[in-house]
Simulated scan of single mutants.
Amino acid sequence: MASKICCENFCVIKDPGVSFARMALENLDGRCNQLENMANFLLGVSLSAYSKLAISDAERVKRQSEALHTLETACKLSRMEDPVVLYHLSLEYAEQRKLDATLHYAKCIVKLEVGSNFKGWLLLSRVLSAQKRFLDAESIINAALDQTGKWDQGDLLRTKAKLQIAQGQLKSAIETYTQLLAVFQVHSKSFGSRNKLFKDKRDQIRNLEVEVWHDLAYVYISLSQRHDAEACLSKSRAIKLYSSTRCHAIG
């Protein structure tokens, strides 16, 4: 439990986050596969995050290698049946640019969850995109949109728009962004009358909306439609006063 809490706080991932996971493994000494699986998983997640703080390349590679090993161990202990473990293992392979392995585990996640979790679809699409298989990636996003409620479509639609941009389909991307902004309007009306329990979710959606306005502004800039781009940046400013991305776009 202590290690899990530390995993959720980047400031203490190294110490005591990694240390708690190691202590758990030492004390378990192979007596409980389920707890050993969880300890290996938390150690892998902690080491993966810790590797990003490494000063030298050698140190970073060493931590990444250990993270991958512990996540693979957790995957074996769970008999490839824990989608959360598979997801983080796939992410670690992606971090190390081992895309074939990433794709394999991403497919396993979607199959295991029967497409019920949009994160699995999103990961699979992004791996295909990294392999320049944009049409396949967009097909995956479309399949995910068919099986996902509007509440979870934000990241999916934004990814679809970016894939369309990568293929030079700027007008289609504008239509997708417009569809996404309409979803935000539905969110805004729904959360507007709710209590403070929904504050974090509302803030998350508003931050995503700001980034979408910036994305759309860049599309209009590439089309030399500067007035439309300025309108998008004004919309962004109305939501969030300070933004480095907006300053870059204005420049």
Rank of each mutant, 00 (worst) to 15 (best):
D146W: 06
Y177W: 14
E81S: 10
K240P: 04
M80A: 08
S125D: 09
H214S: 11
F184K: 05
L53A: 07
E36F: 09
A58V: 14
K62F: 07
N117P: 00
A137D: 00
L233R: 12
G30N: 09
Y218L: 15
D203S: 06
Q164W: 04
E92G: 04
I5E: 10
N9H: 11
K199F: 04
Q96S: 03
A217Q: 06
H248K: 12
L128M: 09
T245L: 07
F134R: 02
L122Y: 03
I5L: 08
L145E: 01
Q131G: 00
C75Q: 05
K76G: 05
R237Q: 15
V85G: 08
R237W: 05
H227Y: 06
A238G: 08
R31P: 00
D29C: 07
L157E: 03
D215M: 08
R202L: 14
L208F: 13
L77T: 00
I165Q: 05
F134N: 11
S193K: 15
D29I: 00
Y242A: 13
A39F: 03
S129I: 07
H69V: 01
D82H: 08
L47G: 03
D200Y: 00
K196C: 03
G251V: 10
G192C: 07
E72C: 02
H88W: 06
R60I: 01
E230C: 01
V110K: 12
S125F: 08
K98D: 07
N9P: 05
L103F: 12
Q167K: 14
K107G: 12
R246I: 11
V219I: 07
L47S: 00
L35N: 01
Q34P: 01
G192Y: 05
G154L: 08
A231V: 09
E66F: 04
E175Q: 13
E175I: 02
S48Q: 10
T70K: 06
R158V: 02
Q185V: 10
L28V: 01
S224D: 12
L241V: 06
L28K: 04
R22C: 04
R31L: 00
K52Q: 04
A143W: 03
K199G: 01
K62T: 04
Q147A: 10
A143Y: 10
F198A: 10
L208E: 14
I141H: 09
K132E: 11
N142D: 14
G120K: 11
S125Q: 07
Q169E: 09
G251C: 14
D200M: 02
Q164A: 09
F184G: 00
H214E: 13
L103T: 05
A21Y: 06
G154R: 04
A238W: 03
F10I: 15
T159H: 06
L99A: 02
L223F: 03
C11S: 12
V114G: 01
W151D: 12
K189P: 01
L91K: 10
A143T: 10
K199M: 10
T159W: 09
A24Y: 01
Y93V: 08
L71Y: 05
S46G: 15
K132F: 04
C247A: 15
A54C: 14
K162Q: 09
M80K: 05
A67W: 08
S188N: 11
E230K: 06
L180I: 00
L86Q: 11
L25Y: 12
V85Q: 03
